[in-house]
Simulated assay, not measured.
Amino acid sequence: MQQQQSQQQQQPLYTPKGPQMSETPAVITSKDLLYLTDMMSWNLMALKKAHFYAGQCHIQEISQALEKACQMHERHYKQILDHMQKHTGQPPQNPSKNQGQQMQ
């Protein structure tokens, strides 16, 4: 019984099958584009909320931390956008259905 348990513990939990990729493929599938568009929407929503709450907050340290979070999400949004433009040659159609405002 102990021998079986020790053999099971030595084996990795997951062993990938098939060929290993040495680098990321240069192709973005339609499913990848949908996921990247979702990621852009999440970052856009997070940056808008962080900016809104930073403006509502009266404690300077918290307001600054929220603005820093806002800048981080904006950076991520732009990185994803740049990546999509690089691989597709065009920006996404609708990064957010409820975008409402342009980023500054």
Score class of each variant (00 low, 15 high):
64 Q>E: 09
77 Y>L: 11
86 K>H: 04
13 L>Q: 08
35 Y>M: 15
100 G>E: 12
30 S>A: 12
17 K>M: 09
44 L>F: 11
82 D>W: 01
75 R>D: 13
73 H>W: 05
89 G>P: 05
84 M>E: 02
20 Q>R: 13
55 G>E: 04
42 W>N: 04
6 S>L: 11
82 D>H: 09
54 A>N: 09
88 T>G: 02
103 M>L: 10
5 Q>R: 03
7 Q>K: 03
68 K>V: 03
23 E>M: 12
84 M>T: 08
19 P>D: 10
4 Q>T: 10
33 L>N: 14
21 M>T: 03
10 Q>G: 14
89 G>E: 05
61 E>V: 11
13 L>R: 02
18 G>D: 08
63 S>M: 15
70 C>L: 02
51 H>I: 00
18 G>W: 14
72 M>A: 13
103 M>I: 10
69 A>C: 05
33 L>T: 13
72 M>Y: 06
27 V>I: 14
22 S>E: 14
27 V>G: 00
88 T>D: 00
54 A>T: 08
91 P>C: 01
29 T>M: 08
14 Y>F: 15
76 H>W: 11
81 L>V: 02
81 L>Y: 11
30 S>F: 11
10 Q>S: 14
99 Q>W: 06
21 M>W: 02
27 V>L: 04
59 I>G: 00
23 E>D: 08
43 N>Y: 13
65 A>F: 13
92 P>E: 08
33 L>C: 10
77 Y>A: 03
94 N>C: 06
43 N>K: 09
5 Q>I: 09
69 A>M: 09
75 R>H: 06
37 T>P: 05
3 Q>D: 07
52 F>T: 08
74 E>G: 05
97 K>H: 11
23 E>L: 04
47 L>Y: 09
61 E>Y: 10
70 C>G: 10
84 M>R: 04
33 L>W: 02
75 R>I: 04
89 G>A: 06
20 Q>T: 15
35 Y>E: 15
80 I>G: 01
99 Q>E: 07
64 Q>D: 09
58 H>S: 05
84 M>F: 02
59 I>V: 10
50 A>K: 01
62 I>Q: 10
93 Q>S: 08
29 T>C: 07
79 Q>W: 14
93 Q>C: 05
99 Q>Y: 06
8 Q>W: 12
64 Q>M: 11
12 P>H: 12
53 Y>S: 01
12 P>I: 15
4 Q>S: 09
86 K>P: 00
89 G>M: 10
102 Q>R: 07
66 L>Q: 05
85 Q>S: 03
56 Q>V: 04
48 K>E: 13
52 F>S: 07
76 H>E: 06
17 K>D: 12
67 E>Q: 10
34 L>T: 12
50 A>E: 05
57 C>W: 00
54 A>L: 03
15 T>D: 11
37 T>D: 04
40 M>N: 03
75 R>Y: 01
13 L>K: 03
79 Q>F: 14
51 H>Q: 11
102 Q>I: 12
37 T>M: 02
52 F>P: 00
17 K>F: 05
46 A>T: 07
51 H>E: 14
95 P>M: 03
6 S>C: 09
23 E>Q: 10
12 P>R: 08
28 I>D: 02
